[in-house]
Design a protein around this nucleic acid. Structure first.
Lengths: 235, 235
DNA sequence: CTTTGTATGAGTGTATCCACTATTACAAAG
DNA sequence: CTTTGTAATAGTGGATACACTCATACAAAG
């Protein structure tokens, strides 16, 4: 569940949710920043209530932290937590490709090559929307698993680290290394060996973690209270 | 995340959350059943608001499904979805043991044997609280990974299938096969080989799925709308 | 007897209001 | 100048109130 198209709910709460999510992903709301319902409500021309319920959803997704009587803050991740999320995502995406393997046909492989090509172009142009292409690439692959909950979890993990990826890419601008590795993944899928594809995907996902971590460490970034991801809410 | 002790928040919303969660896990609220805020609020001597926010949390954990303007129903799982959850849990718990391996010392191993012994006793007595012992066993192992988000996700997955496990165990009463396999897991941990332990844990988790599925199929159980799980997380 | 339209009621989503908690700023005492 | 107590204010959690949606039952028309 997450970003990909959702069936248009038109409810105010949903609007609030999407707006806040967007602002967290984009980095407008920084980790540690306090979110005041009153303010956001006015901004979106609605009352505090739908905003509060949106906070709940965001909290369950680990993007925000709600301490009783102390309000809602954008949850920052420590470097250890970022590592943890990459570890989790690596096994989940590994599982996803493995389960997806029987469903890849010639058309799908062609489409995959297309995605990679688009990433190359985006990467050359500048890292800004390379991130979106990269997420689409992964989403496309995982989509073939046809396991909605698995797909949703993976999407959530992408989103959780997105703000950090964004600042990183903003500074390095050249994620060429990753694009190369992408080819490896496609190649592994082409072999038709599910176990192999799983292993390659795992490696591929994990390879990003140390680079991002090193960047953040140098930058002294990554502070803020931890969260509670999917599972639930407040500590 | 979820059941294990939580730091006592004393807020009404939290109380509602725990109460409803409990009633879903225990099977008091059946899949497909509609949850009416008004009713539950009266039952817990509070207003509808905290109940609604509790619904949000439960929805993000996939235990409940909220359709706009149509209320909140306990989300049932199809057999395919149950399989999916076992697949996901297998890789996550596999990851958890692998990461936990360096932390198992003699004391931990002794404690593990203790857990298994308790499960044997509980299994002999009757399947009722064997389920609790089994969850504790897994939670204990995963706990050593020291990765809170990973642990929380795994716990959420245990909870999601709990109602189904419960009716199953109520009918078969003898999960002896599983208890034997438990020993294999402990044995694998004892070897100190992380990769091996991961593989064994994966097998162990997956082994339950087909048995549970077969039971449910015969019983014609498992209907109800799907959910959106943890992805937690997200949308 | 079937179909279609309408009305009534239950239930949901949002807004407003109130009580209480936490936090900040400030003042008095050391 | 530091520390500690206290008051004021901002903000949260919860309750109540209201408008709108959906569903059901019933009635009229075919």
């Amino acid at each position: 569940m997450s970003f990909a198209s959702k069936g248009m709910a038109a409810t105010a709460q949903d609007e609030a949710y999407r707006a806040i999510l967007q602002d967290i992903r984009s980095g407008r709301y920084q980790p540690g920043e306090r979110l005041i319902p009153e303010t956001i409500a006015r901004e979106l021309a609605m009352s505090r209530m739908p905003v509060r319920e949106a906070f709940q959803r965001l909290a369950n997704e680990g993007l925000v932290l709600i301490r009783p009587n102390r309000g809602c803050i954008v949850s920052g991740l420590t470097i250890e937590e970022i590592y943890e999320l990459f570890e989790i995502r690596s096994v989940l995406e590994g599982l996803a490709v493995r389960l997806a393997m029987p469903r890849f046909d010639a058309a799908a492989l062609a489409e995959l090559d297309d995605h990679v090509a688009r990433m190359h172009r985006a990467g050359a142009a500048g890292g800004a929307d390379w991130l979106s292409r990269h997420q689409e690439f992964h989403a496309y692959i995982c989509g073939f698993s046809r396991h909605p909950k698995l797909i949703a979890q993976i999407a959530a993990l992408h989103i959780a680290v997105e703000p950090y990826m964004r600042v990183w890419l903003h500074h390095v601008a050249q994620p060429a290394y990753a694009t190369e590795r992408q080819d490896e993944v496609v190649e592994a899928i082409r072999t038709g060996d599910a176990e192999h594809a799983e292993a390659v995907m795992r490696d591929h996902v994990l390879r990003t973690a140390p680079r991002l971590a090193e960047f953040l460490r140098k930058r002294g970034q990554a502070v803020g209270a931890s969260s509670a991801l999917p599972a639930s809410t407040q500590p």
